[in-house]
Design a protein around this nucleic acid. Sequence first.
DNA 1: GTCTATACACCGATAGAC
DNA 2: GTCTATCGGTGTATAGAC
Lengths: 214, 214
Amino acid sequence: MLGEATTSWQAKRREGTRQEILSAAWAVARQHGLAALTLREVAARVGMRAPSLYSHFDSKHAIYDAMFEQAWSEYEELARESDATVPAEPRAALRYLAWRFFDFSVADLARHQLMNVRTIPDFTPSAGSYAPAVRVLDALHVRLAAIGITDGADIDLFVALVGGLIDHQWANDPGGTRWARLIDRAVDMYADALHLPRSDISSSDESATDQEER
Amino acid sequence: MLGEATTSWQAKRREGTRQEILSAAWAVARQHGLAALTLREVAARVGMRAPSLYSHFDSKHAIYDAMFEQAWSEYEELARESDATVPAEPRAALRYLAWRFFDFSVADLARHQLMNVRTIPDFTPSAGSYAPAVRVLDALHVRLAAIGITDGADIDLFVALVGGLIDHQWANDPGGTRWARLIDRAVDMYADALHLPRSDISSSDESATDQEER
DNA sequence: GTCTATACACCGATAGAC
DNA sequence: GTCTATCGGTGTATAGAC
């Protein structure tokens, strides 16, 4: 009907400034730390005053919430893109999955803290923002099932193993490779425990992932 | 000499109020969350106004710093006390060490966040407060060496493994046992990877630790 | 030395004018 | 939608009472 409250291009413009705000928020978080994010600085970067942000987000937590969804969507996309590249051989596949998540988590501290560590005092992601994270975990279940890993406890163990390496890499050797170097060993150890078939072609095949200087 | 600035009982009294403040701080942290700790509330609990705390601590971070030291000293003491109880058999010893730290970390969220997670934005423990943590790690090195584990990478892997289980227990199943139930399996997997001798006495010996309903 | 009162700069959030 | 003004909260610096 005529006189509709919001036209299509108005909605698009609104979404545009929303993205601008989020983009500014990421920049601040990466520069000053996730917890040091302030509405006043975010607003300044998009040429606004702090209270104006409340026209686009209900609260500061709502901004964190949208960032949380973006971060997991980002990984979901990366996982989907590299999906065809996952090796078929079980152990190589596990190594690939471990490295993929490790590299992603180690590349951006603010993002990692938001996704995997409870850094923000009272923040809990909403159900909607949690959806991409759930889909990523579902996709992992499918991938592991293809390898023959279907037991929930086995999956939990794999997740905890990789997560532990990531956390300690950030906590004790940020920017280094001290814990990254343990990934292949950790995955092999895990694969042995699950009695996954050995690919005894030779000892020089290494992992099928594309790491450079490790 | 006479007219000394601080007498012995004055120093003792000073240390007493310091402990009172720290005790109040722990209570607030456990009740409202570690990051939600405010000087005004801590002060109120010891019958002071907020600025008065600055006679005893240089800053809020200094309080966190003292709490950090207390937390690790607490574990150091527990480790020392139970030192004689650590089984001699390598795999049982590993299980014992894993359970000991897991249980300690899972018992108190605020304490765990302070010790192992970087929850407070700008806080970094001072060298002095870090000392007990270093001693705990040194003691772990000694313990593992007695089992035959001396390689730094092996130790890192063990630490990351147990830490990963703790973090995921808190993050995804606080108060539950979903990740606790994986400890023995994880330790066995680790022990196998290191080719630790199997204690093939029987299959009913279980771990030598004193868990109840696991 | 120990504590208080006061003040300051900053924060997230709200109300209301335009 | 965006502004200004403001509120109640924070950590913390300082001056001064005792």
